[in-house]
Simulated scan of single mutants.
Amino acid sequence: MVQCSSAQDFYKIELKDTYPWCIVAYDSLERSPKERIALIKEIGFNKYAYDWRDRHLEDTSLELQLAMDNDIEILSVWIWLNAKRDGIEQLSHANERLFKIIEQLNLKTTFWVSLSENFFKDLNHQQSLSKAVKIIDVIAMRAAELDCKVALYNHSGWFGNPYYQLEVIKALPQHELGMVYNFHHAHGSIEDIPQIANAVIPYLKAVNLNGMEKNGNKILAIGKGDYEKEMIKIFIKSGFRGPWGILGHVENSDVKKVLFQNIDGLRSLQDQ
């Protein structure tokens, strides 16, 4: 679908190199687990990343089991920590329940972890780094008990800065932490993408794609922006070979239509 300009850097993104992301919490049809797994198979994905909200926890075990039964790789499971309900030593009831589900299923996956901005309110950089290291250390130890991995997810605020995430990773070498890079949380860093890609590539586990405009919509279909084609090329030239996330992250929309818009947009970048 997308290729670099030189033969040496050539790399084509196929559907097998991609996975859907944000298809649970963003779907106007509110598909059941069975319907969602059927959708993933219908489109042709062989893996997916599981996002959720508290209301989905009743069905999480069923959905992940259905994915495994249908030979769909569960690439990752999302975990969002908020200082209003999660502490360094005590996670929220919802996050504790998630860990329990993963344990009961004996699922070996990667937790995509991000921390809310409210953890770092009124803290300077060094204080923020110290707190982030303590929190991620605890999460990584919990994940290791389940034979799972952890990858840091750039969302927003202090923890959304990939350079700060690198500092956390280097402070915890015992955990072999990874990173997930999200185009849709990178609008303020478009001009710095070459430097960011080269810095994160040793730890990069996944890249979630999005159409990119500097002053436009946060969520935009791939191929509708001005910068995503070059950004993809930069990551490829830096050595990243996937997997690549296809977003379903649109409010009040049928996620099937959103996924196809992004798949078609990614294909159009090669046609150009």
Rank of each mutant, 00 (worst) to 15 (best):
N210F: 09
K229I: 06
E230A: 14
A199E: 00
Y163V: 05
P202T: 01
P173W: 00
A197S: 12
H175Q: 08
P194L: 06
M212H: 09
L177W: 11
H184E: 13
I190S: 04
G223R: 02
N154F: 04
L177R: 08
G188N: 05
L220W: 07
Y164S: 11
Y227H: 14
S189Q: 14
K205E: 15
D192K: 12
E191C: 08
E176M: 01
G225V: 08
S156D: 15
K218Q: 12
A197T: 06
A199Y: 01
M212C: 11
L209C: 02
N217I: 03
K205S: 14
H187N: 12
Q195K: 13
L209G: 04
P173F: 05
N161Y: 04
P162E: 07
K218P: 13
N217T: 02
E228A: 02
L220E: 11
Y181F: 04
L177N: 10
K218Y: 00
A206T: 06
K218F: 06
A206V: 05
L172W: 01
N217H: 10
I219G: 09
H185A: 03
N198F: 01
K218C: 10
E228N: 06
L172F: 03
N215K: 06
K205R: 15
Q174W: 00
S189W: 03
M212L: 15
W158K: 05
P194M: 03
G216T: 08
H175N: 02
H184C: 14
G188K: 07
E230Q: 15
A197Q: 03
A186K: 06
A199H: 04
H184R: 13
Y203G: 09
G225D: 05
H184M: 14
W158D: 01
H175F: 13
I190V: 15
N161S: 12
L177H: 06
I222F: 14
Q174V: 10
P202M: 06
S156I: 11
H155N: 13
L204Y: 04
Q174K: 14
A186R: 01
N217M: 09
S189D: 14
I169R: 02
E167F: 03
N182R: 06
G157F: 04
N198G: 00
A199D: 07
E230R: 10
V168H: 11
K224N: 12
E191Q: 14
F183T: 04
I201F: 00
N198L: 06
G211V: 02
H175I: 09
Y181H: 12
N198K: 10
L177Q: 11
G157Q: 03
Q165F: 08
L172V: 01
L172R: 07
D192P: 05
H185P: 05
A186Q: 04
L166Q: 03
A171P: 09
G160T: 08
I196C: 05
L209H: 03
M231A: 13
V180H: 05
H175P: 06
H187D: 07
L177M: 12
F183Q: 01
I193M: 13
I193R: 01
V168C: 11
N217E: 10
K205F: 00
N161H: 08
F183H: 10
I196H: 00
G225Q: 10
Y164M: 01
Q165V: 04
L220Y: 07
E213Q: 14
V200N: 03
N215Q: 09
F183W: 00
G216C: 10
A197C: 10
V200I: 14
N154Q: 03
M179P: 13
V207E: 12
